[in-house]
Design a protein around this nucleic acid. Sequence first.
DNA 1: AAAATAATAGTCAATTTGACGTTTATTAAT
DNA 2: ATTAATAAACGTCAAATTGACTATTATTTT
Lengths: 245, 245
Amino acid sequence: MQPQIISNISVDCVIFGFDFDTKTLNVLLIERFLKSEESSEPLVNDYVLTGYHTYQNETLDETASRVLKELTGLDNLYKKQFKVFGDPNRLMNDRDIIWAKNQNFNQRTITIAYYFLLQTHEVNLGKTEHKAQWFPVNELPALGFDHRAIINEAYADLKEKSMYKPIVFELLPDKFTIKELQDAYEAILGTEIDNRNFRRKLITKKFIVKLDEKQVGISKKPSHLFMFSKDIYQKAYKENYLINI
Amino acid sequence: MQPQIISNISVDCVIFGFDFDTKTLNVLLIERFLKSEESSEPLVNDYVLTGYHTYQNETLDETASRVLKELTGLDNLYKKQFKVFGDPNRLMNDRDIIWAKNQNFNQRTITIAYYFLLQTHEVNLGKTEHKAQWFPVNELPALGFDHRAIINEAYADLKEKSMYKPIVFELLPDKFTIKELQDAYEAILGTEIDNRNFRRKLITKKFIVKLDEKQVGISKKPSHLFMFSKDIYQKAYKENYLINI
DNA sequence: AAAATAATAGTCAATTTGACGTTTATTAAT
DNA sequence: ATTAATAAACGTCAAATTGACTATTATTTT
């Protein structure tokens, strides 16, 4: 027996992935496609976030994790419930109306939006039954519902948090180079950062731990690997109540 | 005809008020009282946040503003939708169960939590029909539902934001002294701040504008009044993309 | 006129920033 | 085996900011 869904409440997930090759921050979207029965011409052909309704016996966090796992197979990623989207007129454009009719829903639905952070290469796109695809957050395709607004708010939240919290590390592997860290910051913030000042600033942080390892398998001078120590960070954070407006 | 409510969705409001006399950050709570029909002894006697269900044709932001206005008569305050509380077992303790029976609701309800910022003296407590009262955020009374958790999360969010955003000004009048500003920071952060360094740091900010006015009606040396210029702040902010982890 | 008190200004060494130029370790090419 | 190419990594210096303090000033009340 299927668990019962709450029909007017859903969770939508903005899955952010940092792509090391293109050095861009990307969003994972799934295709929404519907073609006319008569003309076989596409009525709806755009992209949406992954999401689903909450089950009666499930927390919202659990819904988000379930939805993520169904699409990516992944667990235990950084997860942030950042905003609720529940305007009475969330479904406004023609494609949404066609889609809603086809799927037989017409109720006002409130969606709790989450975002997740990972590296694009962690996801095996071939595996999922949905047609899922990465898009740079600055080059999004046509999107259904209010999903463009949801992505933009998620991105704004991530951008802001990245400036004062050690959240970038969630987009990187455990072992990373300072250059990769800088690339991630530049992708998120959309700015260039002076490499020498960036290095100096980050390397002096006690919670950025230098490992006895270097990169392998690259041409040119291989760089040192570092890791982020959550423990050291949290200890240091407690003393440090500074106003920085 | 009454607008129709969405029975499984509500909004709860954490109303933060800064009290200039006690220099504390307070929360406005309303009494929840129910007495036994036989014994006339109180079955439920604690406090809760103000809140209500969303109407079908209303945005969540509108619900929050409506609920605020009903209790305080106020409009146009700083408002932040900060988190959703929707666990299947939100209503757990005995008092909640008695209350729920009495009010005839037993459905899983998801509540969207907001917080508002103001000065305690802006609210005329006598005017409201509810028994409403201010409590210091660190000395909360017995609370119904999961409202203690909601307040704590709101407070954590406010604390964090106050460290990197000019949000304290929402707790102060338009014209304020540097001492009042410091008091507000100390109340929020729960720390003492060196007065001389604080003054120096804040006065040098271009968006803290010194007025040609002094305090009136106080003994001792009257202090200068300042205001916060949102315009200047926003202009300066755009250039300033700094990592501060 | 003096006492009391809160506001406000100032000092100095230590640290952090911003804006640059230089050296070093590695691989690929000769 | 030497050299060219390239990205990593280190260094400099003046300016600005911080942290931890002491001192002065403008008011009102006595």
